[in-house]
Amino acid sequence: MELPTVFEPVMLREGADALARAVALAPQRGAGLLAWVGSAARAEAALVLEPELPLVEARLALLAAANALADALGALGPPEAAVTLRWPARLLVNGGDCGGLRLAAPPDAAEDAVPDWLAVGFELALSFPPGTEPGHDPGRTCLEEEGFADVTAEALTEAWARHLMAGLDLWGAEGPRRLLADALARLEDHRGIPGLRRGIDPATGALVLEREGRRETVPLA
């Protein structure tokens, strides 16, 4: 795996949980540890981060990771593929659920304190098991079915890590405005409902829905 030296890749066997491994190693190995699963059927990886914001704000890293995964697929896959999000962090390809992302923090981390570390990870289906009938589950898909047949777990992990670092650097330099705008533009939830305004609260990451004077918030995590 070819990545900048800021990353410390740790390859796991098929069947492992990348986020669980990253969480276990985070206190000792720190930021940059990248646990990933070598598998032909799924891509799964998790990266340890060193946040500089209180946990309540640092949770925006989940949206940064979702944006990075969408950007990685946009770079690796067919240009006509539609990559979107379902709140808070499910990834859709051409409308089908292909996988998602998770965020983990130290169990004793307080909302108003900067956590020692965060770990953010994703899992995507590269292919279905042999013998699976096309359309067996209309709500789910895999990358192979959507024209990403040549994308490997290693290539997707590399691309995701690079895009995530770029997104985190931009967030640190300019604040969360671009991060939130990109996530909101990809979000399928409540899209196109007349009179409904959608937004994401930069202080908490919550999805904000406003209509006819009523305001509803949906937590990020």
Rank of each mutant, 00 (worst) to 15 (best):
A31I: 11
A161P: 08
P194V: 11
G30P: 08
A104F: 08
L207R: 01
L55F: 10
L187D: 04
T157V: 03
L33C: 06
A35Y: 03
R90T: 11
A109T: 04
N67K: 07
A125R: 15
P54Y: 12
M11W: 07
T157E: 02
P78H: 03
G30H: 02
L34G: 02
S39E: 10
A110G: 11
V151P: 01
R178F: 05
L207K: 02
P78E: 10
E210P: 04
A125V: 01
D71L: 11
E174D: 10
P4A: 10
A159M: 07
R59G: 13
P9Q: 02
I200K: 04
A104I: 05
G172Q: 12
G135P: 03
L19K: 00
P88T: 12
E80R: 14
A173W: 05
A105D: 03
A166G: 09
G77E: 12
L156V: 01
D201C: 14
L209P: 01
L47S: 14
W36E: 07
L33Y: 03
A125D: 11
L47A: 11
R214A: 15
G139F: 00
G38F: 05
A183L: 10
S127N: 06
L92C: 07
L55M: 13
V218S: 07
V120D: 01
P219Q: 07
G192E: 09
R177N: 03
V93H: 08
E52I: 13
G205A: 07
A104G: 02
V120M: 06
E133Y: 08
A70Q: 06
A18Q: 01
H163G: 02
P138I: 11
P115M: 13
C98L: 15
T132W: 01
A181G: 09
Q28D: 15
A89D: 12
A183I: 00
G131D: 06
A24G: 09
V23D: 00
G74D: 09
A155N: 04
E111H: 15
A72C: 10
G147Y: 00
A203V: 10
P219C: 10
L73E: 02
E158V: 09
G32K: 00
L118V: 13
G213K: 12
T204A: 03
A75F: 08
P54N: 10
F7K: 04
A119K: 12
